[in-house]
Design a binder for these strands. Sequence first.
DNA 1: TCCCTATTGCAAATGACTTGCATAAGCATA
DNA 2: TATGCTTATGCAAGTCATTTGCAATAGGGA
Lengths: 144, 144
Amino acid sequence: MAPARDSSSLLREAGLRATAARVALLNALCATHKPLKAAELRRSAGRGMDLVTVYRAMDALEKAGLAKRIGVDRTSASWEFAHRAHHHHLVCRGCGELEDVGECAVEGLEKRVLGKSKRFASVSDHSLEFFGTCRDCASAARAA
Amino acid sequence: MAPARDSSSLLREAGLRATAARVALLNALCATHKPLKAAELRRSAGRGMDLVTVYRAMDALEKAGLAKRIGVDRTSASWEFAHRAHHHHLVCRGCGELEDVGECAVEGLEKRVLGKSKRFASVSDHSLEFFGTCRDCASAARAA
DNA sequence: TCCCTATTGCAAATGACTTGCATAAGCATA
DNA sequence: TATGCTTATGCAAGTCATTTGCAATAGGGA
Ligand SMILES: [Mn+2]
Ligand SMILES: [Mn+2]
Ligand SMILES: [Zn+2]
Ligand SMILES: [Zn+2]
């Protein structure tokens, strides 16, 4: 999708060195619609690199606001490209299938939540995930 | 708070053996308002037990619906007593300070989210956390 | 092109959680 | 209350994602 030149610019505009590893990872991230785990990112990057490099690069991309860490899986992290509107996810408890949920009815709530709190000075963001069962898992369960 | 007798009954009503470890853990969980990590639970239980026992017991309590796992900390799980109304949390990015958020404006959304999805058969629940800065961390930051 | 500094690879360390197996309780029953 | 089957626990070892230390390498401004 996004040509390498774009990723390089994005990186430099974000104040990061446009290293080969970061460019490849950012391209991989843009090329797909779904969140990718560290190992998947390395594979998708199509360029040999150490897993440690993936972790360090994703840390950098995350801090720079280019990638967003998704905590949907309890045992491992995944990231998605951050230049997309704020959204949430619908996740299948059976197979991990994941779908974007565009709607966010929570945004206005942050202020109200802060207003009701005595101990907090500010609320900056939130995470919201919906869990359920996808059609495939539902029919598999029915068949069993 | 809850006397040992209560925890034993709760456990047995949930179809679990009321072992000493589980009773102590459930008591510890009821005695506090905040989610506890595995190591904290063991300490609070006031009774020597292996960490493995904590994990296995919390698994059991969770499946039985007596405890709820909280995923607020990326590096470790914590649990809170489950016999409380559905609620969410406000978490301090600085120190981990945590506060209950009673309000849930999301409940009605589950149906709408399911309605908009083509690949999902059902939505069973959701997780919602608010992140921000507590007053202490805010003034500490100001002082620095 | 040169130099300084940020980044990478490799190897080793962490740390939360799991698993296997033998022993010690629960608790239903007699 | 004693018995016996079944499940829970302790201990030791294993797993696995993620982190850290350090020397070698490669961005990119001058
Ligand atoms: Mn998404
Ligand atoms: Mn709570
Ligand atoms: Zn939102
Ligand atoms: Zn809710």
